[in-house]
């Protein structure tokens, strides 16, 4: 038997997993979102967050923002696989492209009375969350911020009657003059 330990490939595979925010400019045509999602599920990639909306009605173009994680080789694959989809115009890795702004909006319903209800309002004030609906025993807060900020807000609301959450997922754009 050859000394297989010594023959191990010299190319060290990077195995560290990192999180990337990828923006994809696509033709807004039927099935395009299914193509992107099918790519991720079919090849076993991770989707942590995904948002999509038309950004140019005249050109029928939508922007998909997907937050994913993987080793550098997997991230490279994801971008290459996205790029070769026929309706895809452009793929940009915002995490690598430089500093970027990431924002998410969440609607958070808290059902509570008494001290808990007041406490939830105080915390909402600290987080600059707005109450967009109120009844005698409930609030719906609207909060905008980074995903981390929203996570923190939700965590604090948990013991105060948190009963329902709706989040938009991340929208992201690079800072400065850089564009896709």
């Amino acid at each position: 038997m050859p000394p297989t330990e010594l023959l191990r490939s010299e190319t060290v595979k990077e195995t560290e997993i990192s999180k990337h925010t990828i923006s994809v400019l696509v033709d807004n045509e039927s099935g395009v979102l299914a193509r992107v999602i099918g790519l991720f599920s079919g090849r076993g990639y991770n989707i942590e967050s995904l948002t999509v909306a038309e950004v140019d009605a005249d050109a029928h173009q939508s922007r998909i923002t997907v937050v994913t994680s993987g080793t550098p080789m997997v991230i490279e694959q994801i971008k290459a696989q996205l790029s070769r989809l026929v309706p895809v115009h452009k793929v940009s890795d915002l995490t690598l492209a430089g500093p970027s702004v990431e924002r998410e909006l969440a609607l958070v319903k808290v059902i509570a009375t008494g001290e808990k209800r007041v406490e939830s309002l105080r915390i909402a004030d600290i987080f600059k969350a707005r109450a967009v609906d109120a009844t005698n025993n409930s609030f719906v807060y609207e909060i905008i911020g980074s995903p981390e900020k929203i996570d923190a807000f939700i965590k604090l609301m948990a013991p105060l009657g948190l009963s329902e959450i709706s989040r938009t997922g991340v929208a992201a754009i690079s800072r400065g003059t850089l564009t896709m």
Binding site: S9, A80, S83
Partner: peptide, 26 residues
């Protein structure tokens, strides 16, 4: 077995499909 594939080699790959490059073997 990829762990033992051409262990002492430098590799060049030519492909029209970007996603074929660095997919299995860096």
């Amino acid at each position: 077995n990829l762990d033992f594939f051409a262990p002492h080699s430098q590799k060049i790959q030519i492909d029209i499909d970007q996603s074929s490059i660095n997919k299995n073997v860096p």
